[in-house]
């Protein structure tokens, strides 16, 4: 660990890993709650077109990816809200268009090699200037969660009750999608666009196995996210493995451990059945 910290690029990479590990599961909890686990993958595909545009026009690929990803995410949400059936195909069109467009645009510039780094991440090539941008975006993501969290929670629970409570449901839906897009851009340098969703979803899926409540799930997921990102990065340094896939495999490992832990805990809890609860349940069955 001390050897690792003696390198500048590794200190920056570790700071990145912490930011990604915190922010991706935070918004990911709302994404999973809305049952949109594949949203991040779609946005990742679309962001690739932004990368291509950035490379082609000589502007910052990160900022171009941010702009295109946020626009694409809001478009997805509008399509989803408009129609329940047709949206499915429209989404697929956006995803494939984004991926194909990105590859064509990057190749037009002869940037096939850098494409690889965006698809699978290159956290160790991140410079201090990139880190400031990512830190700013992470503050935006965590700020949205802190300020709008209660409204987003009710939206994910029941959209009609949210409307009947006077919440601006369309704005909030677009906010979740746009914030997920910002997160995709944050995580893209760390784990790559093709694996970006993993850090939004896997820590939340792991935390769900152990937590009873929403807030507890989110906090536990953020802990699991930082744990996976930092140990994955350290492991990749130690054993000379690609960092992005190492982080994702570790997150999968954390998920597996959580499933086992949850199963053990449930078995322990169901053994001495609480008398009151079971009587009440019986009464309700009888009342049907």
């Amino acid at each position: 660990m001390s050897e690792m910290l003696s390198y500048d690029f590794m200190r920056i990479a570790l700071a990145m890993a912490v930011l990604v590990g915190l922010s991706a599961p935070a918004i990911g909890t709302f994404v999973v709650q809305r049952r949109l686990s594949l949203l991040g993958d779609g946005i990742g595909h679309i962001a690739l077109t932004g990368i291509g545009l950035g490379l082609l026009t000589g502007t910052s690929p990160t900022l171009a990816a941010l702009a295109v990803a946020v626009l694409g995410a809001v478009a997805i949400e509008v399509l989803r809200a408009r129609s329940r059936s047709g949206a499915d195909v429209a989404l697929a069109l956006l995803f494939y268009g984004g991926l194909a467009g990105g590859v064509i645009l990057t190749n037009a510039r002869g940037g096939g090699a850098s494409l690889q780094s965006y698809l699978f991440g290159s956290i160790t090539s991140v410079r201090a200037a990139d880190l400031y941008v990512v830190a700013g975006l992470a503050v935006v993501v965590l700020g949205v969660v802190a300020v709008f969290g209660r409204e987003l929670f009710l939206l994910g629970q029941d959209e009609e009750v949210a409307r009947a409570s006077g919440l601006p449901v369309r704005f909030l839906g677009a906010l979740v999608a746009a914030t997920a897009a910002v997160t995709v851009v944050i995580a893209m340098r760390a784990v790559g666009l093709l694996l970006v969703s993993a850090l939004m979803i896997l820590p939340v899926a792991a935390a769900q196995q152990l937590a009873r409540g929403f807030r507890a799930t989110m906090l536990l997921a953020m802990f699991a996210g930082v744990l996976s990102a930092v140990t994955g990065l350290a492991g990749s340094f130690q054993y000379d493995l690609p960092p992005g896939p190492s982080i994702v495999l570790l997150a999968l490992g954390v998920f597996g451990a959580a499933v086992l832990g949850g199963a053990v805990r449930r078995r322990r809890r169901t053994a001495p059945a609480p008398v009151l609860a079971s009587r009440e349940a019986e009464a309700e069955v009888a009342g049907r």
Binding site: T29, R34, D158, V204, G213
Partner: peptide, 12 residues
């Protein structure tokens, strides 16, 4: 009652 993430009775 909704959502893909657990919530406690009190939270709801």
């Amino acid at each position: 009652a909704g959502g893909g993430v657990p919530a406690t009775v009190r939270e709801v």
